[in-house]
Write a protein that binds this DNA or RNA. Sequence first.
DNA 1: CAACTGTACTATCAGACATAGTACAGTTAG
DNA 2: CTAACTGTACTATGTCTGATAGTACAGTTG
Lengths: 129, 129
Amino acid sequence: MLIEIDFRDKRPLYEQISDRLKRLIEQGVIGKDELLPSVRALSMELSINPNTIQKAYGVLDRDGYSYSVAGKGSFAADVSALLPARREAFYHELDEVLKRAPALGIGVADVTEHVRGVMKKGEQYDTDH
Amino acid sequence: MLIEIDFRDKRPLYEQISDRLKRLIEQGVIGKDELLPSVRALSMELSINPNTIQKAYGVLDRDGYSYSVAGKGSFAADVSALLPARREAFYHELDEVLKRAPALGIGVADVTEHVRGVMKKGEQYDTDH
DNA sequence: CAACTGTACTATCAGACATAGTACAGTTAG
DNA sequence: CTAACTGTACTATGTCTGATAGTACAGTTG
């Protein structure tokens, strides 16, 4: 349900799974200290080898998105500490995309207009940063 | 000179080479119908196997960035026909990045301001699209 | 105790990437 | 015509990553 595998995606399964879980934790769908599905349960649900799930969970732990306790399970970590780094990564990715604009004849006005068109929701109180 | 390999990059060599050449052709550094370096010459210059260069050139041909003639060489194609598709791909990639903004507390104003800060050059005559 | 949890191995298979070597057909300058 | 270039097409090999399979062990919990 929460996790779905796209077999058309060329990325490795463990990366798809870890990325999907990262976003669920970032967005608060999985709250702080909430129990994640067990390695074996998720491997059953997705029909994927447990080792592959374990690898994905290892990435989550390593990147600070979860903490695991043998015998208990894996839990969502407090991601507020990761916010500055994630914002920096966001602007870096944004810059990489914007680099291509000039060669396409796309200007500042085009981009800003497009941005306003896409990001129009949930902006009642979030405009002050 | 025009092409450089970054061995820290995890992407395959042939992809680095084809991407680099695509941008050179996109930006007009290599003009329409201009002769690209030969497979063997480029393999010597970069100290890379000719088969790897051939694979990169195959990608260029397949994606419409070049056309090759046995005995003569590979030439830059007319990329103007690719412009609409490239613009569409640009906005698609942009949207993918922007999706993450709300979860980071980054609003429209933040993004547009950042965009203006980054894309300030060459905007004297390109603002009308 | 039984059934769960994460974790750590080894082994195997498949595919992608890169290299090496050879070969062939078309083009061009001499 | 010949020699030297061009792209192209193979086969073979080695390496690495991703994924699977199976087993095992330690900690937690009802």
